[in-house]
């Protein structure tokens, strides 16, 4: 600005400036932790008595924020997790509520400070549905330029929907994790790189909720015959892909292939006509 190097991150940065000018940088730096200094504004929401915007010193624990300031879950409910960082943030389970809120601690738990969102979830909330909700946001916000973000978020969202409909198998869950890895490592910008975070963090702390939703492979008998010496070898088994499959006693390993799919989930496309020239970023 005015011919000088200028860094403006966002409105929150602006909001800090008057206070720092008035009371000095030392005063501001004295607030917070060793590496995360000053204060932070959060939009506290979800299953909490007092919702709204709050400003807290860095390093305050999650528990102080959601239980003392937020007043805890209404009607005596139990906190299950706190989601921080906005749609591409992560879910921190109640067991880690004493974590200080600073950049490093949140990062260690697979979450981020991000946009300053803080959503409290209680026992009623299904974490797979939470992941689906945020993935829907990332899918809709994808600009569509790079393939992994544009198409990968669609596939991840569809997989989460099928999990919730109890139509996904263990192979689908493996596919979901494969997609998270792909989209995180190959996307062009931050939106795609962080889009898998809601899935990754809920898988990390609430994997059982995913496992509870898995459906059996539809082609397998509902109740497999009890293995007995007489019947053990009668059922033909798929071969191990690498091993010679003659003679007949080959080990049984099903090769990985695409998941079964019941029905396409209909997804209204978002269209916005634009006559502007391609932006500079579309050029080399």
């Amino acid at each position: 600005m005015f011919g000088q190097p200028t860094l403006i991150n966002n409105v929150e940065t602006f909001a800090c400036v008057p206070a720092i000018l008035r009371r000095g940088a030392e005063w501001f730096a004295a607030i917070g932790t060793e590496r995360s200094k000053g204060t932070k504004v959060f939009a506290l929401a979800g299953k909490v008595k007092h919702t709204g915007l709050i400003e807290v010193p860095m390093g305050m624990t999650l528990r102080e924020i959601v239980e003392d300031m937020g007043g805890g879950v209404p009607d005596g409910g139990q906190i299950k997790a706190v989601q921080t960082g906005g749609p591409s943030g992560g879910c921190i389970p109640a067991a880690h509520l004493d974590t200080p809120v600073d950049y490093e601690s949140l990062g260690r738990l697979g979450s981020i400070m991000g946009s300053g969102g803080m959503i409290v979830m209680d026992q009623q909330d299904n974490m797979v549905d939470v992941a689906r909700f945020f993935m829907e946001f990332c899918r809709d916000e994808s600009c569509g330029k790079c393939v992994p973000c544009r198409a990968g978020t669609v596939q991840m969202h569809d997989l989460l929907c099928r999990l919730l409909a109890r139509q996904a198998t263990a192979r689908d869950l493996a596919k979901l994790e494969e997609l998270c890895d792909l989209v995180r490592n190959t996307s062009l910008c931050g939106l795609g790189i962080t889009a898998p975070n809601p899935v990754l963090s809920t898988l990390r702390f609430f994997r059982q909720e995913y496992l509870d939703l898995l459906a059996p492979e539809p082609w397998k008998p509902a109740t497999p015959p009890a293995p007995s010496p007489a019947s053990a070898d009668t059922r033909p088994q798929p071969p191990h892909p690498a091993s010679p499959w003659l003679p007949k006693s080959s080990p049984s390993t099903v090769r990985k292939s695409a998941p079964p799919k019941g029905r396409a989930s209909s997804r209204p496309p978002t269209r916005r006509a634009s006559a502007s020239p391609p932006s500079a970023t579309w050029r080399a």
Partner: peptide, 27 residues
């Protein structure tokens, strides 16, 4: 959605007919 048609139309032909609309999978 590689955008080659858009770029060739803008920067080689100079007609600026082709463009992108929408976003994400709706592009």
């Amino acid at each position: 959605l590689c955008g080659r048609c858009v770029r060739v139309c803008w920067y080689v032909e100079g007609a600026a007919t082709k463009n992108f609309s929408g976003r994400g999978a709706g592009s």
